[in-house]
Design a protein around this nucleic acid. Sequence first.
RNA 1: GGCGCCGUACCCAAGUGGCUAAGGGAGCAGUCUGCAAAACUGCGAUUCAGCGGUUCGAACCCGCUCGGCGCCUCCA
Length: 502
Amino acid sequence: MSIVLYNTRTKKKEPFEPLRPGEVSMYVCGVTVYDDCHLGHARSALTFDVIRRYFEFSGYRVQYVRNFTDIDDKILNRAQKEGVPWQEISKRYIQAFYRDMGALGITKPHAEPRATEHIADILRMVQGLVNKGLAYAIDGDVYFSVGKFPTYGQLSGKNLEELQAGARIEIDPRKQDPMDFALWKASKPGEPGWESPWGTGRPGWHIECSAMSVAKLGPTFDIHGGGKDLIFPHHENEIAQSCGYTGKDFARVWVHNGFVTVDKEKMSKSLGNFFTIREILDKSPVSASAFITGECLRYYLLSTHYRSDLNWSEQSLPEAKAALDNLYGLIQRLEESGSQEPMASDEELERALKHFAHKFMESMDDDCNTPKALAAFQEFRGEVNKLLVKGLSGYAKKTAIGNLKKFGEPLGLLQIPSKEWPFIAPSKEKSMLLEGKAGEHTPLIGSRIVSKSSEWIEQQIQLRKEAREKKDFITADNIRKELAENDIILEDRPDGTTRWKR
RNA sequence: GGCGCCGUACCCAAGUGGCUAAGGGAGCAGUCUGCAAAACUGCGAUUCAGCGGUUCGAACCCGCUCGGCGCCUCCA
């Protein structure tokens, strides 16, 4: 079985065949660091994080590169607006990027080049294109001549005549062709710049990705990714520059993720209809009581196929959390002691496990079908719950847990201890109250502050048990109530013992 | 104007030519239970925006219509 990916270039799903056996080289367009990331950025980062993880899970050695564009008009504009050096802007938002991606559990790429670290590579490429006659300089600017690149438009399925007919930009009369785009831009007074054969200037928008990908992965590599809004002109231009310069093939497979939309409209800075990752994680716009974690957001984003658009709605996060509660709840029950002896149901578990593993991999192999992969998890959960009623050996339970975690890994789910999973969502107010008391002795579960220690809870359960044995249900119910007020719920088992969650 | 995508149950969402149209959330009923929760069992699209066509057979292919969106300008 091999992994199949949809290739934008051929408009088809294709079995993935790496350039070098057992290795995958991938370059993904990161962000221009001029503001906080919104959900759309999260989706892109997550899509390629999962693709990368799944390749590794499948035994490939992956070389994953994702850039920062840290010099650009938007950064300069923002710096000017705030009256700070432009480097301060890029530095600030690179940090913000790491903070947000960390919360989402996005693994770090192997290399994260920044445009400003590759000025020499950029200049070499621009010069090379000029030497080959594919680019020309005017007044310190250098433009790529699209007319000299016969296959221009092959990725996006556009042709030059159509593009010109629909051109909405005002045309720079100095350009030989309206579609020609800037490789290098002369610095205006007061703007940052680097010395070049054409005077002081800075890179155009598209060239940095060509220079960095070729520098890090060589002229030809396996996968190039990004949001589908980058297909044209960004990726089209990257192909023209890179192939024009190296004379070799560029990326073999082009992978593009769909948008996050709001009321079916693309989430974007210009429309102003965006939610930043920080906002969603911190302010919890879903509901005041929902305890939102990056993992819920991850589950939510993965519950739609990466190429489809995903319409954001506030109820999605609680739904994702409910689905995760069920999975973590299963793990919690599996962690409880089981029979030392093998049991009849153990064999059935083996079968369920085989089916789960098969469906999971089959789904992921098929163009990273994460919604189907999640369905495999949920089906497995149902099977194991049934077997748990019949009884499973301790060994079988451990096997089940091991596999849930193993297959959760490429999705970045189910990796924290079940004890740290917040089954009960403390209200926003209560969380803040607890944080306010952080200086005092406050129990900590994972990174979460909780109101009561496990010892205290166990003690209360014991008191309740004694009350129940005396049929003093009023006392017993009061204890349950008090625990509930502290976001702890009790589940009585048939054998008289009590399980608790928070 | 050019190119392209989408429309599946109350909500989210797989499926893109043939096994009962996955899965999650919400809901209802039942088992269990002092109560509660969990778990389990059952119920929930004779139907895939609409209309035609191709086919032995279509949610899936083709055409048209309706509705929504995207790219062609910065954008993940």
